[in-house]
Write a protein that binds this DNA or RNA. Structure first.
Ligand SMILES: [Mn+2]
Ligand SMILES: [Mn+2]
Ligand SMILES: [Mn+2]
Ligand SMILES: [Mn+2]
Lengths: 218, 218
DNA sequence: ATTTATTTTTAGACTAATCTAAATATTTTA
DNA sequence: TAAAATATTTAGATTAGTCTAAAAATAAAT
């Protein structure tokens, strides 16, 4: 049996592994989970005894096949619950994550699969992140950073890089939500800010920081 | 903050308190939760330090007002999730309890209240047990044991006393489910078994043990 | 009213998960 | 490449929750 705490460590390592190919350092995990580095070392030793991570002293950790499978399943549950909260209960996209953090730990294969069907087998969660299927396969999609588009190019918002409530609420204010159509009018070298045409009707300027955290498909 | 384990103890004491007015003994809790009596003593001391139970050595425990409030809220969550699993995901009444045991610990006031609305503010769960509202008030209903009806009396099944999967699955086979209409044809003193007319069409004999575990309204 | 049986508490130990402080490795910088 | 800075591990402690075995209290039976 694997504990909720162990699950959280696996998920953290999984998340960090998406951002880099190298083994994940003790400190990276410690920062991600707000625990001490000492605690992380302890846990990595425990997880490697269970063959869920490959760990070598001072060398960091990677997920084993089984660890990876478990982490992917957690991500599946997390994102399906986010869809449930958003689609069925009317929560906003900045509210769903914290509740899903709890719900992802519910153990019942039947529950996950029935939930998936109940929700219409969604392929993406409310933040545009892909939902792995029962076999752990993610839907892949070409997506670019909004900041990388050139003048006059058009994109549709399909995801976010940042997931903080503050950022998501700010996007609501800017009306830069999933599905929004964005055309690049001009890019200003001075501070990297970008003038866009939003949904073919409204021009506005967004900062580079915002544009660096939005994914679009073209 | 209260832990999941503490929540389970509160719920156990709450459940046992429904069956008797006296303080709940250490052994009763230990039996209910499958833990040692020593563990229960430890926990009762901890819970009484948090003013969630009133506990005196060798005298058993009762819930404080706050403990009772928390336990009722857990029951509310448990039964709402059972309705969700039954109504929305198509689980059977013998499957919902175990999953709800996990889901009842999810912490979010908003979630509970939105779920309640989503489900149409149900007053009873799939076993016919009343669901407390947000203020902790239960819908009360006159209900009798099927075994207590007299010859020719009619009742509608509205609940069960036993909640074991074995019993619930057996009731499915007998078609003695919630809503079934039952008329007493004859009661046999020899072994207490009862001949009933089910849904105005089928006669069958049920054991006293079954009749003692079914609630009907008349 | 003693003795016997049962219940409950205490004593002591264990595991999971966490922390701080100190020791040791690794990496960076000069 | 030696010194300084940073990262990681070890040592030792703490808390929640659990257990078994022994001691003490309560209840039941003779
Ligand atoms: Mn999330
Ligand atoms: Mn998400
Ligand atoms: Mn139940
Ligand atoms: Mn129920």
């Amino acid at each position: 049996m694997i504990s909720q705490t162990e699950e959280n460590y696996l998920k953290a390592i999984f998340k960090l592994s998406e951002q880099s190919d190298k083994p994940i350092s003790t400190n990276a995990v410690s920062k991600e989970l707000n625990t001490s580095a000492a605690s992380v070392t302890d846990m990595l030793i425990r997880l490697s005894k269970k063959d869920l991570v490959n760990y070598a002293k001072y060398k960091g950790a990677t997920l084993s096949d089984e660890g990876s499978r478990l982490a992917t399943h957690l991500v599946r549950k997390h994102r399906l619950w986010e869809v449930f909260l958003y689609d069925k209960l009317g929560f906003t996209w900045d509210e769903v994550h914290d509740i899903a953090e709890q719900m992802e730990h519910i153990r019942s294969e039947q529950l996950v699969d029935r939930l998936d069907d109940f929700l219409g087998n969604p392929k993406f969660d409310p933040h545009g992140d892909p939902i792995p299927d029962a076999d752990g396969n993610f839907a892949q999609r070409q997506q670019y950073l909004l900041a990388s588009l050139n003048n006059s190019e058009v994109g549709v918002v399909v995801g976010v890089q940042e997931h903080s409530s503050a950022f998501l609420q700010y996007l609501d204010k800017l009306e830069l939500v999933l599905g929004a159509k964005v055309q690049i009018i001009d890019k200003y070298d001075y501070d990297g800010s970008i003038k866009i045409l939003l949904n073919e009707e409204k021009e506005q300027i967004i900062t580079n920081k915002v544009a660096q955290n939005i994914f679009v498909k073209t």
